[in-house]
């Protein structure tokens, strides 16, 4: 974390401090709508960062991360709705179950040598499998969805994640900040270097004594556990969960857009990606609504085009290019 700071030059440090202060003070001036957009951005920073650890650093392309969001959300919401167990406690089994799924998928893939495209398809298959399964789990609402009841009387119970927009904004801020710091720390750790070695060349990594299976397992475990926490946030923020929505592949795609556009395998890529894409999406909805077009479709088309253009022109993402142009990082000498 200290080295994250040290690697930035004076200008980079100033930009970072100003940005953090602005985010902390934003609720003073922001409207409720703006605050909800910012909350959404921070949520995508968080889950994007979780995915970035696995793909950007360890090089394992999961296209089924919605699985962990959904599992985390459903477990915590189910415990709350049926047993009155609050999310601060519920997050533990939520994370445990998502991580167990992650561990199982990872074990299957890495033990049996399912790599590259096949690995991606395996992750999709598990997410889809689970989605259809949840359509049929009665106690969790099935296809009709699971709702967390809105209770006026409990509104102040922040310890049960029953808060207003402001509460969720700061919660998202803490989550996103923690994810960035964790990534920065991991990226410079021994494990982070092992991941990057595996991402670059698995055979060479093995020849340097790296236990590839273990390192990859750690990547799925950390990533799925982190993502599940995001799922708990999602469930209590939106108060509803539908299998067709939370587990769907487009959700997995939505979650990976930020890191890809921002820059895979960088600490700030997912941050920049979320701050660029989410507002653009909102703007587009506003514009198309005015024009009377079918807004969801238009927004998605726009994202599809952004994805194609970015991967065509700047496959490394916006952040590496931006930070160089603006001179925000120190060239190590």
């Amino acid at each position: 974390m200290i080295s994250l700071w040290r690697d930035m030059n004076r200008r980079g440090q100033v930009v970072l401090v100003v940005a953090v202060l602005a985010m902390l003070l934003a609720p003073v001036v922001a409207t409720r709508y703006l605050l909800s957009v910012l909350t959404l951005i921070l949520y995508f920073v968080y889950v994007g960062q979780a995915w970035n650890l696995m793909m950007g650093y360890a090089g394992q392309l999961s296209l089924g991360h919605a699985l962990y969001v959904g599992l985390g959300g459903y477990v915590a919401a189910g415990l709350w709705v049926h047993f009155g167990i609050g999310p601060w406690l519920g997050v533990i089994p939520a994370v445990a179950i998502a991580a167990a799924f992650g561990a199982f998928i990872g074990w299957l893939a890495f033990r049996f040598g399912i790599e590259g495209v096949y690995f991606s398809l395996l992750t999709i298959a598990f997410a889809e499998f689970t989605r259809i399964g949840f359509d049929h789990i009665g106690p969790l609402g099935g296809a009709g969805g699971l709702f967390i009841p809105y209770q006026e009387s409990r509104l102040g119970e922040w310890w049960n994640l029953r808060g207003g927009q402001l509460f969720f904004y700061y919660l998202a801020f803490v989550l996103a900040g923690a994810a960035v710091l964790l990534t920065a720390w991991l990226a410079r750790s021994r494990l982070g270097h092992q991941w990057m070695a595996i991402r670059e060349d698995e055979t060479a990594a093995r020849a340097l004594g790296i236990d590839v299976f273990r390192a990859k397992m750690k990547a799925v475990l950390i990533s799925s556990a982190m993502t599940a926490v995001g799922g708990v946030f999602y469930a209590f923020y939106y108060n509803n969960l539908f299998p067709a929505q939370v587990f769907e592949m487009s959700r997995s795609i939505e979650l990976i857009l930020g890191p890809i556009v921002g820059g895979l395998g960088t600490v700030f890529g997912p941050v920049i990606g979320a701050f660029v894409l989410t507002p653009l999406g909102e703007l587009l909805i506003a514009v198309t609504d005015k024009a009377g077009l079918n807004a969801p479709g238009a927004k998605a088309i726009f994202f599809g085009l952004v994805l194609m253009i970015i991967i065509y022109l700047v496959p490394g993402g916006v952040w590496p290019w931006l930070s160089r142009r603006l001179g925000l990082v120190r060239r190590r000498s």
Binding site: H193, Q194, M196, A207
Partner: peptide, 25 residues
């Protein structure tokens, strides 16, 4: 420790990070 006949550096990493990965063993 071994080297490969057809070299396999970690292409996107710096020279130093390549060697750090070995040193971390």
């Amino acid at each position: 420790a071994r080297t490969f006949q057809i070299v396999r550096p970690f292409p996107a990493l710096t020279v130093e990070d390549n060697v750090v990965i070995g040193a971390l063993l």
